[in-house]
């Protein structure tokens, strides 16, 4: 049950923040479902995109922020490209997720968070991503040790594959970039 009198007044500010940051109007959505029908991951979401939009329309931002939709959406923007109202649905979802992050709402999708963190850590340290290291660390940290190991020989039969972690020269610059992003994640 969604207590509308409450959610519509309490959720108003957060919805306004989402609308402001994404530049989209949630009230524009007329719930046709095109976004969901084109979404390759909708089956895995607890709320498919149109329902996610509906939650925001009803002011139920808490529920939207805690949903797996934001965490699992990988921003392919198919929904945005097909929306008959031209709403950038992917942006609304991503923005809501970012606000949830800022508010410290815990991600239930730990694997994905781990992937993102390891990815960025690798880039922060070395300036470039090393896919093999990422795979190794991910498997180690997630406990899924054999994950994707079958792919390794397939990759290794390529010429020129970098076995060791590549590093760029001006790592100081990259550190500065990450430092700035940490201090000020948004412009």
């Amino acid at each position: 049950m969604i207590p509308l009198s409450e959610t519509l007044s309490q959720g108003r500010e957060l919805v306004a923040e989402i609308e402001h940051r994404s530049g989209q109007k949630v009230a524009d959505c007329y719930q046709c479902g095109t976004c969901s029908s084109t979404c390759a991951a909708a089956d895995a979401f607890d709320y498919p995109p149109h329902m996610f939009m509906r939650l925001l329309q009803l002011g139920a931002v808490d529920r939207a922020m805690a949903s797996t939709t934001g965490q699992l959406c990988y921003d392919c923007m198919t929904c945005s490209s097909r929306c008959p109202i031209r709403i950038d649905v992917a942006d609304v979802i991503e923005t809501t997720k970012n606000i949830a992050d800022e508010q410290g709402i815990r991600e239930s999708e730990r694997g994905l968070r781990l992937f993102r963190n390891l990815f960025l850590k690798n880039v922060r340290r070395h300036g470039r991503l090393h896919e093999a290291s990422l795979l190794a660390w991910f498997n180690l940290k997630s406990g899924k040790l054999t994950n994707d190991l079958s792919l390794v020989p397939l990759i290794l039969r390529r010429k020129n594959v970098r076995i060791v972690q590549p590093r760029i020269k001006d790592r100081a610059q990259v550190r500065r970039i990450f430092q700035r992003a940490k201090e000020r994640p948004r412009w």
Binding site: R21, S22, G23, Y74, D75, D91, E94, T95, N98, F115, R116, F119, L120, V123, L129, I177, F178, R180, A181, R184, P185, R186, W187
Partner: peptide
């Protein structure tokens, strides 16, 4: 930064 680096409208990284 590929996909894991937050972008979307106003993200710094």
């Amino acid at each position: 930064g590929a996909s894991p680096a937050p972008h979307h409208k106003a993200e710094t990284l």
